Simulated scan of single mutants.
Amino acid sequence: MACSCQKNRQQWEVVTAEGKVVFPTGNQTANKATVDTVAKRYPGSKVREKAKPGAK
């Protein structure tokens, strides 16, 4: 059986100005500070909360 300890964890992704996701935090252990640092490498990029599976 799969571990469910990650299911309620907040996840982030870095999206470039063109709309491409360049850094999703799926199974990685990246926190908000790490994602913010990665976003600085891509001019015009945004950090957004990753949508939960099944959410509309």
Score class of each variant (00 low, 15 high):
Ala39His: 01
Gln6Asn: 08
Ala39Lys: 00
Lys46Asn: 12
Lys7Pro: 00
Val47Lys: 02
Val47Arg: 01
Pro53Val: 01
Asp36Lys: 08
Ala17Tyr: 03
Ala33Lys: 15
Gln28Ser: 14
Lys56Tyr: 10
Ala33Leu: 04
Pro43Ser: 13
Asn27Gln: 09
Val15Arg: 15
Val21Lys: 05
Lys40Gln: 15
Pro43Met: 04
Thr29Cys: 03
Lys20Glu: 12
Ala33Met: 05
Glu13Cys: 03
Glu18Tyr: 05
Thr25Met: 01
Pro24Gln: 10
Asp36Ala: 10
Lys56Pro: 02
Val35Asp: 01
Gly19Met: 06
Met1Leu: 13
Gln28Leu: 14
Val35Lys: 00
Asn8Trp: 03
Gln10Gly: 00
Ala55Gly: 06
Val47Glu: 00
Asn8Glu: 06
Thr34His: 10
Ala2Cys: 09
Lys46Gly: 03
Val35Tyr: 04
Val21Trp: 07
Lys40Pro: 11
Phe23Gln: 13
Gly26Pro: 06
Phe23Glu: 09
Cys3Val: 10
Glu18Lys: 06
Thr37Asp: 10
Trp12Cys: 01
Lys46Trp: 10
Gly44Ser: 08
Ala30Val: 10
Lys20Trp: 03
Lys52Met: 07
Thr37Phe: 09
Glu18Asp: 13
Pro53Gln: 10
Pro53Arg: 10
Lys20Val: 11
Trp12Arg: 02
Cys3Gln: 08
Asn31Pro: 00
Pro24Gly: 04
Val14Asp: 07
Asn31Thr: 11
Val47Ala: 00
Thr37Gly: 15
Ala33Asp: 09
Val47Ser: 00
Asp36Tyr: 02
Thr25Pro: 00
Lys50His: 06
Ser4Trp: 04
Met1Ala: 14
Val47Asn: 00
Val22Glu: 11
Ala33Pro: 07
Pro43Ile: 01
